[in-house]
Design a binder for these strands. Structure first.
Lengths: 146, 146
DNA sequence: TATTGTTATACTCTATAACTATA
DNA sequence: TATAGTTATAGAGTATAACAATA
């Protein structure tokens, strides 16, 4: 369902955003990472955090994060260790291999952005950024129903 | 996975687009239509067309369109009839009830856009539209892999 | 009793192949 | 043999509830 059915700005933003996301996911795949795993690594880059906090910032259910971390740990890109202060908690940390993977991700996403915004000057890209920042996107329960 | 993990323009466009799409899907739901059914009705508004052509413009597999049309026909918003010139074909047409539903959709989407772009003047909305139109979004096989 | 992480289950979406009826 | 529509099936993604270990 990717047809743009009208000239509405809302549809335009939604569909261009979707295609942009698809292009970026392709770039992440080229870098060897499943999109959700790449997003998780990005959140871990600044520093280690608990599994629960990680689920919160990623806005995924803790049960989904289990599978993500199993994959990241399986490929040696992140590690879980018990928090000695509270043995229920896992501290999650990116590994050196994970940092290297993130550098590949960074290059691939930069290349994708060069393609996506090739027709825009850097000034126009700044304008686009500022306008997008002012679109009202209240977080909350926004899902569909029939 | 809705966290915005960096200040990259690509991510910004992707995430704002996703949230905009969610807001619009909510509006369609308020108007009483599943998003894909609403999109299908919109394509039918200008005039009847064959089921195959409809699948093509919607960019969905013909087998998926079967369920959509079953629902639309079940709620009396669209109708299938055999093409007398080629009895394999179905001509799909929107009904009067379907047109009325589209008017509700139109109002709901307009209200959603008023909210989304409340912080932008109409000149700024024009600028945003023109910039989005120049983002390179080559259609093709852009999916993820691990 | 509450919290952290885990497992199990189910439900939606989507992709694919096989089937029918017509050409 | 090819085409239009349909059905059936399987896979990915996601949401929810129940569970074990620890506080």
């Amino acid at each position: 369902m990717a047809a743009e059915p009208s000239d509405r700005l809302g549809f335009l933003l939604s569909f261009r955003g979707e295609l942009t996301g698809a292009r970026i996911r392709t770039a992440l795949g080229v870098a060897g990472l499943h999109p959700r795993n790449a997003m998780t690594l990005m959140q871990l880059a600044p520093g280690a955090m608990s599994q629960r906090d990680l689920a919160a910032v990623l806005e995924v259910d803790p049960s989904q994060l289990v599978a993500i971390l199993n994959e990241l740990e399986g490929s040696g890109l992140a590690e879980r260790r018990r928090d000695p202060a509270d043995r229920r908690r896992h501290i999650v940390e990116i590994t050196e291999a994970g940092e290297a993977a993130l550098e590949r991700v960074d290059s691939a996403v930069s290349e994708a952005e060069r393609e996506l915004f090739a027709n825009l000057t850097s000034e126009e890209q700044d304008v686009l950024r500022r306008l997008l920042d002012r679109v009202v996107v209240e977080r909350g329960d926004h899902d569909c129903s029939e």
